[in-house]
Simulated assay, not measured.
Amino acid sequence: MNNFDSLKWNLLNWSIRFLFPHINHISTEELAIWLSDKNKRQPLILDARNKIEYAISHLQGASLIPYDSPEIKYFIKCSLNTPIITYCSIGYRSAILAQRLQKMGYTKVFNLKGSLFFWFSENRPVFCGEEIVSYIHPFNLFWSLWL
């Protein structure tokens, strides 16, 4: 990663932390290590994007719960202390979802820093169903510049 890329990701992550100061965050590296440790309780992974984005590709095992779903409590069937990871394209929508989950009483909620775009930029796997794919949905033209 070049200096400009590092700067833009650092600025983006700082902005999201500033806007959502009470949200816990997890790095892509920390999540990859967690997922590879089958002896550790695995998190519930929630994709906060929309159906079209999710259908193109997502993290393995992720469930789609758009950040603006009116009644997310009906979609989540787990205890309040289950570890939950939220992600979207860059981390903003997933921070909103994480904040909503915390307000509902979930205690172990983490927003993925850099979300799917950063995960993908590190050549980590993304899936369409059970198949690894080599593309992700850019959301729109502006955000495609981050890929």
Results as ranks from 00 to 15, higher is better:
residue 115 S to E: 00
residue 85 I to W: 06
residue 119 W to Y: 03
residue 135 Y to R: 15
residue 22 H to N: 15
residue 91 G to T: 12
residue 61 G to K: 06
residue 55 A to H: 09
residue 87 Y to C: 11
residue 104 M to S: 07
residue 44 L to T: 04
residue 48 A to M: 00
residue 141 L to F: 14
residue 50 N to K: 08
residue 123 N to A: 13
residue 84 I to G: 05
residue 40 K to Y: 08
residue 10 N to E: 14
residue 146 W to R: 11
residue 100 R to I: 05
residue 94 S to E: 00
residue 119 W to D: 00
residue 58 H to D: 02
residue 100 R to P: 03
residue 43 P to A: 03
residue 47 D to N: 02
residue 120 F to D: 01
residue 107 T to M: 12
residue 86 T to V: 03
residue 114 G to M: 01
residue 120 F to Y: 14
residue 115 S to M: 00
residue 136 I to H: 01
residue 60 Q to D: 06
residue 124 R to N: 11
residue 112 L to Y: 05
residue 108 K to P: 03
residue 91 G to K: 09
residue 53 E to A: 14
residue 85 I to Q: 05
residue 125 P to C: 09
residue 120 F to M: 05
residue 22 H to W: 10
residue 103 K to Y: 12
residue 17 R to L: 05
residue 75 F to W: 06
residue 41 R to K: 15
residue 105 G to T: 09
residue 60 Q to M: 11
residue 108 K to A: 13
residue 78 C to Y: 03
residue 74 Y to D: 15
residue 30 E to C: 12
residue 4 F to I: 08
residue 41 R to M: 13
residue 139 F to E: 06
residue 60 Q to P: 03
residue 142 F to A: 09
residue 104 M to Y: 14
residue 134 S to H: 13
residue 140 N to R: 10
residue 112 L to P: 07
residue 85 I to M: 03
residue 44 L to K: 04
residue 70 P to F: 06
residue 138 P to R: 09
residue 130 E to D: 15
residue 88 C to Q: 01
residue 124 R to T: 13
residue 136 I to Q: 01
residue 123 N to C: 12
residue 40 K to S: 07
residue 30 E to G: 07
residue 17 R to N: 08
residue 12 L to N: 10
residue 78 C to A: 13
residue 60 Q to H: 10
residue 68 D to F: 11
residue 35 L to I: 06
residue 83 P to T: 11
residue 86 T to Q: 00
residue 127 F to Q: 02
residue 81 N to Y: 02
residue 121 S to K: 10
residue 125 P to S: 06
residue 91 G to S: 11
residue 114 G to L: 01
residue 52 I to T: 15
residue 75 F to D: 13
residue 11 L to G: 02
residue 1 M to T: 05
residue 29 E to S: 14
residue 83 P to D: 07
residue 133 V to D: 10
residue 51 K to I: 08
residue 18 F to C: 13
residue 121 S to A: 14
residue 15 S to P: 01
residue 133 V to N: 08
residue 33 I to V: 15
residue 31 L to P: 11
residue 18 F to W: 14
residue 132 I to F: 01
residue 20 F to G: 07
residue 138 P to M: 09
residue 67 Y to C: 00
residue 102 Q to M: 15
residue 76 I to C: 03
residue 20 F to Q: 06
residue 90 I to L: 15
residue 31 L to W: 07
residue 123 N to Y: 12
residue 37 D to E: 08
residue 145 L to N: 13
residue 36 S to W: 01
residue 147 L to S: 10
residue 121 S to L: 10
residue 86 T to N: 01
residue 145 L to D: 07
residue 106 Y to V: 10
residue 83 P to Q: 04
residue 92 Y to F: 13
residue 101 L to G: 04
residue 73 K to I: 07
residue 143 W to L: 10
residue 92 Y to N: 01
residue 25 H to A: 06
residue 131 E to G: 05
residue 86 T to F: 00
residue 55 A to I: 02
residue 23 I to T: 12
residue 73 K to A: 07
residue 99 Q to R: 13
residue 104 M to Q: 15
residue 142 F to N: 11
residue 95 A to T: 05
residue 2 N to M: 09
residue 78 C to S: 14
residue 39 N to Q: 12
residue 88 C to K: 00
residue 75 F to A: 12
residue 80 L to T: 14
residue 50 N to S: 11
residue 29 E to D: 12
residue 52 I to V: 14
residue 94 S to M: 04
residue 7 L to R: 12
residue 18 F to G: 04
residue 91 G to A: 12
residue 131 E to C: 09
residue 60 Q to S: 12
residue 43 P to H: 03
residue 85 I to Y: 04
